[in-house]
């Protein structure tokens, strides 16, 4: 189904949110709506040593997540109006004329991607910068990243280049929607779950609408 995907190098992402704001600028999004969100994951134990020093086993990393234009998009299935739909090129888009703002896609998407615009009474979401893609350009978030941690391309090409890893703690099992998101996990990510890691910047990623 889906043709295009994102590659995200979590090991290189600093959490600077340039991607988030570049996207907001392109899409004229007011505060509170984020097509791309940067989740900060962290977990640690801190202990004072006998010497009076501090020891820790911290793990911390960032996940920059937009819409993954899933190959099996649960949002599309959930949407009662077909406003949320898949284009022929696999890009999942919302038709604002059809959307009634029921927010059911927001429940169904395991990635928190659809965002509610209260002023317009409809959902909005990353459209993969489809106008740019059709123009032969890259999505804005990808070209914004100062760490060059984001890439965009045809799924087959990304898999060939980076392998087919679509999951990292605490993202959901990719079998649910088959996200077109290929991730290079941060080296610490393997320990995040056992350390009781969690998203610690919740107020910066939540849908406030």
């Amino acid at each position: 189904m889906s043709t295009f995907g994102f590659y995200f190098d979590s090991s290189a992402c600093s959490g600077c949110k340039t991607c988030q704001v570049a996207c907001k600028d392109k899409n004229d999004l007011q505060a509170g709506i984020r097509f791309r969100r940067v989740y900060e994951v962290a977990g640690a134990n801190w202990n004072k040593t006998d010497e009076g020093a501090w020891e820790h086993d911290i793990v911390a990393y960032n996940l920059s997540i937009a819409c993954n234009h899933c190959e099996n998009p649960s949002c599309v299935k959930a949407c009662p109006t077909t406003a949320m739909h898949s284009e022929l090129d696999g890009i999942i888009q919302i038709d604002p004329k059809k959307c009634v703002g029921c927010r059911y896609c927001q429940w169904a998407c395991p990635y928190g991607s659809p965002q509610y615009n209260r002023q317009k009474g409809i959902m909005q979401k990353c459209d993969f910068c489809r106008d740019y893609i059709l123009d032969g350009k890259q999505p804005v978030c990808v070209t914004s990243c100062p760490m060059r941690a984001l890439e965009f391309g045809p799924i087959s090409q990304l898999i060939e280049k980076y392998g087919d890893n679509r999951s990292v703690f605490p993202l959901p099992d990719p079998s649910i929607t088959k996200p077109a998101l290929f991730i290079k996990p941060h080296p610490g990510a393997a320990r995040a779950s056992e350390l009781g890691g969690s998203i610690i910047n919740r107020e910066e990623v939540k849908d406030e609408q």
């Binding site: 927010r103 919740r202 609408q209």
Partner: peptide, 11 residues
């Protein structure tokens, strides 16, 4: 998202 994630249709 989180707990704010509610179905608005029925609002």
């Amino acid at each position: 998202m989180g707990k704010q994630n509610r179905r608005d249709f029925i609002r």
